[in-house]
């Protein structure tokens, strides 16, 4: 049928575009490298394989994961404003990172910086709080979870502000810098765990894609069509927690991608999650890779934090889509 063929072709095109972006990004940097340059010099080889490749891969995993989680939360809460940080993960992670910095816990554990581990714990703690509140109320109501998430988010934000207020100027700046997000710390040591969280999280989410379509149509209707709503929500929550915590630990709370990429992709391949899911992975990943590449070249040898750039680059593109001719956002 035309409907499927058209969308499958679109997905293939998006996949190729993502490959091109990822492939090209590794050669671009403070110094543009061609294949022969990399082959010729051991230093170039080291820069390419040890710095750029893990960094580009990290950016792709982070961008695609954030976009996918945004898509999940928008369907789960039937709310176009939901994003990966709606349930307080970003503030939880920030708080965790801040505590680690202020406590002076530096260094790394099997190559992973302690700040990342702190952020991971904070993110998981925030999500655990939300789940605990929801299960205490013995409800799987989306609205309860959403409100609990916002409350938890505020709780951790004010804790973070308290820590910042009490900290020295230098520590405070370090925290602010972390909040902007960035992929500088990327290495194979952080890529490994991130990749495993990504694989588990993405697999779990992809398996639930058809159920997301049903949830978006309303819980009564989904239930009447045979969706086990409580189980579906639990799986999705577990998957997104792993994925977001893993990403935020490495890259900090990078905004915009998780909120906007699902909307962009809905325009391209429709809201059918079987297509929307893969589209979010390709577009989200490419967008963060592109933003990071610009971030590390535009004022080289200094770097712009990627969080600053995602919205700067994605915003106009999104507005162009918003005021474009086709679908409106009346219902998403």
């Amino acid at each position: 049928m035309r409907y499927f063929r058209y969308r499958v072709i679109l997905l293939i095109l998006l996949f190729i575009a993502a490959l091109v972006v990822v492939g090209a990004a590794a050669f671009i940097g403070m110094k543009f490298m061609t294949l022969s340059m990399i082959a010729a010099s051991p230093l170039n080889r080291e820069i390419f394989w040890l710095l750029r490749v893990p960094r580009v891969l990290t950016a792709f995993l982070a961008g695609s994961g954030l976009a996918l989680c945004g898509m999940v939360f928008q369907a789960l809460f039937r709310n176009p404003l939901a994003d990966p940080f709606t349930l307080g993960t970003a503030s939880g992670a920030s708080c965790g990172a801040a505590v680690t910095m202020l406590a002076g816990i530096t260094g790394s554990f099997i190559g992973i910086p302690m700040v990342s581990i702190g952020a991971f714990i904070g993110a998981v703690a925030a999500m655990a709080c939300v789940s605990a509140i929801a299960s205490l109320k013995r409800t799987s109501s989306s609205l309860t979870m959403l409100l609990a998430g916002i409350a938890v988010s505020f709780l951790f934000s004010s804790l973070l502000m308290f820590f910042q207020y009490m900290s020295s100027f230098r520590d405070s700046f370090q925290i602010v810098r972390w909040l902007m997000g960035g992929i500088q710390i990327a290495s194979y040591a952080t890529l490994g765990p991130l990749l495993s969280f990504w694989c588990i999280g993405v697999t779990l989410i992809v398996l639930q894609l058809p159920r997301l379509d049903q949830l978006l149509a309303g819980e009564d209707l989904a239930r009447s069509r045979g969706v086990d709503i409580a189980a579906t929500k639990q799986w999705l929550l577990a998957a997104t927690t792993l994925l977001i915590a893993g990403i935020v630990a490495v890259c900090g709370p990078v905004g915009f991608i998780g909120l906007m990429v699902p909307h962009i992709c809905r325009r391209i391949v429709s809201a059918n999650h079987l297509f929307l899911g893969p589209a979010c992975i390709f577009v989200g990943g490419s967008l963060l890779v592109a933003a990071d590449t610009v971030g590390r070249t535009i004022i080289a040898p200094a770097e712009l934090p990627v969080g600053v750039l995602t919205a700067l680059m994605g915003g106009p593109f999104f507005l162009w889509l918003l005021f474009g001719k086709r679908r409106t956002f009346d219902a998403f």
């Binding site: 379509d213 149509a217 309303g218």
Partner: peptide
């Protein structure tokens, strides 16, 4: 009591086939 998901009519009717998939 209905939420209107962002689907076309055909997509929405196809959702009714869920129990058989």
């Amino acid at each position: 009591n209905r939420s209107l998901p962002p689907y076309s009519v055909r997509e929405f009717v196809m959702l009714g086939r869920f129990p058989y998939q």
